[in-house]
């Protein structure tokens, strides 16, 4: 095998240096602070002042690298993308809202927006629902943990790997035996084989199936933990009152885990808004399957790249996650203040 290990060796070397640099930064800056603001062998007022000053500075030493990286990689780009969305292709001239105007009139954007909406409705709902059903069922069989593990496994598979797995299932042949599982089942049942990923409108659902397959395990794990956390007394009380198992599940258990269902739902929603790899690998937006993230990537590099339009599409994705963001921040601050 003709493999070049130089990269890996230099990566390991750089990794060790990076770890060393991090450790020496934290240790060194801390040491320096102690030396500059000594608390021992000082007059009491001086020592107290130094301790106070040291305690005020130290958190920022600990936070420094993280804040720097967050600013460069996430906070600044959010503002910069907004700025560029109001500028032309190479961000040299201010063009006002014209990128957004273009967007509203562009058929490919409309297609992507509608498809994204479809994804947003179907995928979180299907994954959460299936996850809930499977969580409830697997808790009742002795081999439930093995079952859960196997259903959870697609989480570890990359979107592009999953796309190959499913493209193979959707494979279509004009003649001869079908080697794609779906068409083999369809022909065995006596129907005509179909080129699934080229069927307008319905192909979106075949692409969504891939993400549902990946995300159901996530929903199942979280919801299973929530179901186990339900207090036994409420269930026992219902059983004594003569509720059957389905009534217990829908009327007693589900209402108690609404909060968790909402969390799972929103987490998958955020993921869906960013879905990119699956569409890129399966169709690259052909046959009416375009989505915003793939469209954005296209405009970023298409014909030298149009950063104005690309950034405008990114801003749309950002606006779509903003309500969830606000909701999360409010919850988190309430929790912090509660402590």
């Amino acid at each position: 095998m003709d493999i070049n290990f130089d990269n890996l060796v230099s990566a390991i070397f750089l990794m060790i240096s990076a770890v060393f640099a991090c450790v020496s930064y934290f240790w060194g800056s801390n040491y320096l602070l102690d030396k500059l603001l000594p608390s021992l062998n000082q007059t009491p007022t001086k020592a107290a002042k130094n301790i106070r000053l040291g305690n005020a500075i130290r958190p920022w030493l600990f936070l420094g690298p993280a804040l720097l990286l967050l600013t460069v990689y996430l906070i600044y780009p959010v503002f910069d993308s907004f700025r560029r969305s109001l500028m032309d292709a190479d961000s040299s001239e201010f063009v006002g809202w014209s990128n957004y105007q273009w967007m509203l009139g562009d058929t490919k954007f409309q297609e992507a927006a509608i498809n994204n909406l479809l994804w947003l409705i179907v995928v979180p709902a299907a994954a959460t629902f299936l996850g809930l059903i499977i969580a409830a069922l697997t808790d009742r069989v002795w081999w439930g943990n093995i079952a859960k593990s196997l259903i959870f496994m697609p989480m570890a598979i990359s979107f592009i790997g999953a796309s190959i797995i499913w493209k193979f299932i959707y494979d279509f042949r004009d003649d001869g035996d079908q080697i794609g599982l779906l068409n083999a089942i369809v022909t065995a049942l006596g129907f005509e084989p179909q080129p699934w990923i080229q069927l307008p409108f319905w192909n979106n659902f075949f692409l969504m199936a891939i993400l549902i397959w990946i995300q159901t395990g996530f929903a199942m794990v979280i919801l299973s933990a929530a179901l186990r956390g339900i207090s036994e007394e409420t269930i026992e009380a219902a059983v004594i009152d003569g509720a059957n198992e389905l009534q217990v599940f829908f009327k007693i258990m589900i209402p108690q885990i609404w909060g968790t269902i909402a969390v799972v739902w929103t987490t998958i929603t955020i993921l869906v808004l960013k879905v990119f790899d699956i569409v890129l690998a399966m169709t690259n937006g052909q046959w009416n399957t375009e989505v915003l993230a793939n469209l954005m990537y296209g405009w970023m590099f298409q014909g030298g790249g149009d950063f104005g339009r690309g950034a405008a599409i990114a801003v749309v994705i950002m606006l779509a996650v903003t309500p969830i963001m606000v909701w999360n921040i409010r919850n988190a601050s309430a929790e912090m203040k509660g402590k």
Partner: peptide, 16 residues
């Protein structure tokens, strides 16, 4: 801020 940054889409960062 960090809770807010959790959901910022990657797409916003690419071009800048």
């Amino acid at each position: 801020t960090i809770v807010g940054l959790l959901v910022v889409p990657l797409q916003m960062s690419l071009i800048p």
